[in-house]
Design a protein around this nucleic acid. Structure first.
Length: 836
RNA sequence: GCCCCCGUAGCCCAAUGGCAGAGGCAAACCCCUUAAAAGGGUUGUAGUGCGGGUUCGAGUCCCGCCGGGGGCACCA
């Protein structure tokens, strides 16, 4: 336990033998240094405005407290910690906070099972995770800890809701929504994956409900355009996912008249050039328009069809094998360019919430329309000559380029020219215009569950939707537990009658609270701002503090949030920017999406029985070895198959490294200049390379370099200048600092044994002496016709001409040559290629 | 169906268009040891999924295929 006794033993021990090795005992180091870190508090971010250090904000996606930390946490937090610790070493004032995303369904389900309150389960798990984080040695500033389920936090969700409401960005509307029958709540589009609930996997069904929405579609164009700021800083994969999700398309709005209806009906199309090929018209069955225009004779058939469609789950509806269905509405539409009467149908392949919920159908050039036309024997008219066979015959629509036919003024034009011309014609006649559409839908916000933020609205029979005044926030949750939380299809809050029945804040009359809670993605859409001033009482965050720390320099988390949390947070930040509370428009400058930890080629799961427990790994190999294994396994974005890696090997390496650091006998502060030049060069080259590698997030390669330096130092001790040489100290000290990014306990212990103090976290990154990076000679490869024929030791600053002469003079080269070479390529000092 | 990424030793992974191997696992052998463990050291194995092309030179760039992974998908 005591450094002095250990040091004495080391210095008096026999060089060359290895009897000095003591067992590397990770548990003892963990216990020792965890205590010391509590005292030293080396990772506290400074709020001192006079602090001259540049500020950096590093953030990990905060965890949901479901039990203890798992392998996935182990990876993401180890990765982010490399960056945080690197920044500390480079002298930045680093903000690296932690908190918990502590509202959510699992707590509620646990509470029902155990007849308890969700808070009990939640906060117990938080404590478990906090203890594990401390053991895991992550460099958090613990003073900023937050939990989204604290009233002091969710109060500001409500405050922000009120602001959104004032700006028309929070609104209520009825319509078909995604309903998860398992979780008994509605879901946002982003939470439905392949027709299933993203959380529980149950098949999502459609329900007609009135719900709260955030108007994220108002920001669709900015969410797309501002991605220019993220180019190169977020992965292409992630940016593509967001782009696809937002789904911008360009086309035209065209006004059709419906016979017997005063107002014309607008349709959106990306192919206005094919307007002359429209042979029928389709309305989404669930659109109000369909209900309005259906002819009395067709009403019965229509309503039966609509009921049929409403019963379909997303899975059925989206099935590509599914046959087209629909029903004639008994009315006709008039094509604005040729006056043609075309029948109006209702069909579920038209969606009520995209475009205007109605389309013009051009079966010749759109496969979906063609499938429908063939099923119901509707006419097919080719208006773009593509050179392919008639779609009416083949059943294959021809959506490609071609020249226009059967299209009056458009005849002979190309697709692009025809689009331009028809938009001009429509605009002149006031029958249409160019238009842009987005796939993105508004964010469905309300949830029929308990453990979330109550929506701060009071429904008054006279005043309508009345926000709870800011000074009465937070609206706290009523005290419900156990059975009272069981899902019934309506929010459990509805059963708390005392809580529900209130006075209207406006008129004082009897009114009722809204009984839904907010999607928990609201909580995570701004938590990163709260960290800058976690106890702030006068608003969600201190604007000045966020100005200082924000935006987040580096965010680390899973790609599964590509169109969830990351999209929502970007939206929130833009709204807050428009409110004048933020001076930036993107929250996360740089994003790193780590891969998953898997086992034997498959995601870990209970049913496969291939789960690996983080705690057990740590117990077996120690924190540092587990962290090192995560980092060394491969590039951060790639999955780690735990079956392919070896925490035992990591542990061995750490023991080696610690031994090297323990065996140094020179005094701290000794001048390195007299030290062994070879080793000094290795050290400086390693530091130089590790710096570049960490800068470019190639941590696995950086670890490999540290391993090489360890080997070099080992050799210097055993078979070189020996442990007393100052170069050995220099190497060991550099190793301790670099290793501290990955293996903080071993680094800290090694640093202490080297006589450093008080914490390696404060040591500072080693400086590279450029003079020690210079090589006296380099090996030049001489190729003849691309094949290596000779190697020359040359000076690194040799000129091309000198090198060429040298290469041509080589005997081995001459043996390959007959006559004058045709060409000689010289890349001094490393390569000469002679083309005979 | 459309779009993106990846295929390098038995395995995980390196390689600004310039000697295919940095690092690790596993394997074999040697030293140390009464022995084992721990420790120290040595060694091999791939011509880069396949086929073309560009280039003095291709794992790297381009085209096509095969295999794996991912995103979007009845979005008009």
């Amino acid at each position: 336990m005591h450094r002095e006794s250990r040091g004495r033993r080391l210095s008096s021990s026999n060089r060359g033998t290895t009897t000095v090795t003591e067992q590397y005992d990770p548990k003892a180091l963990q216990a020792k240094w965890q205590r010391r870190w509590e005292e030293l508090d080396p990772y506290r971010a400074s709020e001192d405005p006079a602090d001259p250090r540049e500020r950096r904000y590093l953030l990990d996606m905060f965890p949901y407290p479901s039990g203890d930390l798992h392998m996935g946490h182990g990876e993401v937090f180890a990765l982010a910690d490399v960056i945080a610790r690197y920044w500390f070493q480079r002298g930045y004032n680093v903000l690296h906070p932690i908190g918990w995303d502590s509202f959510g369904l699992p707590a509620e389900n646990a509470a029902i099972r155990r007849d308890a309150h969700p808070a009990e389960w939640t906060y117990a798990n938080i404590e478990t995770q906090a203890t594990s984080f401390k053991r895991y040695g992550i460099s958090f500033d613990w003073t900023r800890r937050l939990h989204t389920s604290d009233p002091g936090y969710y109060r500001w969700n409500q405050w922000l809701f009120n602001r959104f409401f004032e700006r028309g960005l929070a609104y209520r509307k009825g319509g078909l929504v995604n309903w998860c029958p398992q979780d008994q709540t509605v879901l946002a589009n982003e939470q439905v994956v392949d027709g299933r609930c993203e959380r529980c996997g149950a098949e999502v069904v459609r329900r007609e409900l009135t719900q709260w929405y955030f108007k994220i579609t108002d920001y669709a164009d900015r969410l797309l355009d501002d991605m220019a700021q993220l180019e190169g800083l977020w992965s292409d994969r992630l940016l593509t996912m967001q782009r696809n999700w937002i789904g911008r398309s360009e086309g035209a709005d065209v006004l059709f008249t419906i016979e017997g209806r005063e107002e014309p009906v607008t349709v959106y199309t990306t192919r206005p050039d094919t307007l002359f090929g429209a042979t029928f018209f389709v309305v989404a069955p669930d659109a109000p328009l369909a209900d309005e225009i259906v002819a009395p004779a067709q009403r019965e058939a229509f309503e039966a069809y609509r009921a049929e469609v409403a019963k379909l789950s997303d899975i059925d509806r989206l099935s590509t094998e599914k046959e087209k269905t629909g029903v004639f509405l008994g009315v006709h539409a008039i094509n604005p360019v040729n006056g043609e009467r075309i029948p109006v149908w209702a069909a579920d392949y038209v969606l009520s919430d995209y475009g205007h919920g109605a389309i013009m159908a051009v079966p010749a050039h759109d496969q979906r329309d063609l499938d429908f036309a063939r099923k119901f024997a509707l006419p097919v008219r080719v208006v773009v000559h593509t050179g392919l066979a008639d779609p009416g015959e083949t059943g294959e629509a021809t959506p490609g380029e071609g020249s226009l036919v059967n299209s009056g003024p458009l005849d002979g034009l190309s697709k692009a020219d025809a689009i331009k011309k028809i938009i001009g014609i429509l605009s002149e006649k006031g029958r249409g215009k160019a238009a842009v559409n987005f796939r993105l839908r508004d964010w469905l916000l309300s949830r029929q569950r308990f453990w979330g933020t109550p929506i701060p609205i009071i429904h008054c029979p006279d005043c309508g939707e009345v926000p709870v005044p800011d000074d009465q926030l937070p609206v706290t949750l009523p005290d419900l537990r156990g059975e009272a939380l069981a899902p019934r299809g309506v929010s459990p809050l509805a059963s708390a009658t005392d809580w529900v029945n209130v006075e209207c804040p406006k008129c004082g009359g009897a009114a009722k609270r809204d009984t839904d809670t907010m999607d928990t993605f609201v909580d995570s859409s701004w938590y990163f701002l709260r960290y800058c001033s976690p106890g702030y009482e006068d608003g969600p965050f201190d604007v000045e503090k966020v100005r200082r720390w924000g935006p987040i320099d580096q965010y680390v988390g899973g790609i599964e949030h590509a169109v969830l949390h990351l999209l929502y947070s970007r939206f929130f930040v833009k709204v807050l920017h428009d409110m004048g509370m933020l001076d930036f428009t993107e929250p996360f400058i740089r994003m790193l999406n780590q891969g998953q930890v898997i086992n034997r080629g498959k995601a870990m799961s209970k049913s496969l029985g291939n789960g690996v427990d983080l705690g057990a790994q740590i117990d077996g190999f120690g924190v540092d070895a587990v962290r090192l294994t995560m980092i060394f396994a491969g590039p951060p974005e790639e999955d780690i198959d735990w079956a392919d890696v070896s925490p035992a090997a990591s542990q061995k390496f750490l023991a080696r490294a610690l031994r090297v650091m323990s065996e140094v006998t020179s005094e701290p502060g000794v001048s390195y200049t007299g030290g062994d030049l070879e080793l000094r060069k290795v050290t400086h080259r390693t530091v130089d390379e590790v710096t570049k590698l960490v800068d470019s997030y190639r941590f696995n390669v950086a670890v490999a370099r540290m391993m090489e330096l360890t080997t070099a130092a080992r050799r210097a001790i055993d078979a070189g200048p020996g442990r007393a040489d100052p170069a050995v100290r220099e190497a060991a000290e550099a190793l301790a600092v670099m290793l501290s990014l990955v293996a903080p306990y071993v680094a800290e212990e090694g640093w202490e044994r080297l006589g450093g103090s008080p914490s390696v976290a404060k040591a500072g990154w080693p400086e590279v002496d450029p003079a020690l990076l210079v090589q006296e000679s380099v090996t030049c490869v001489v190729q003849v016709a691309g094949k290596v024929r000779d190697r020359l030791e040359v000076s690194p600053d040799i000129t091309d001409a000198e090198l060429e002469a040298l290469a041509l003079g080589s005997e081995k080269v001459q043996a390959q040559l007959s006559g004058t070479p045709r060409r000689v390529i010289v890349r001094a000092p490393k390569l000469v290629n002679i083309v005979p």
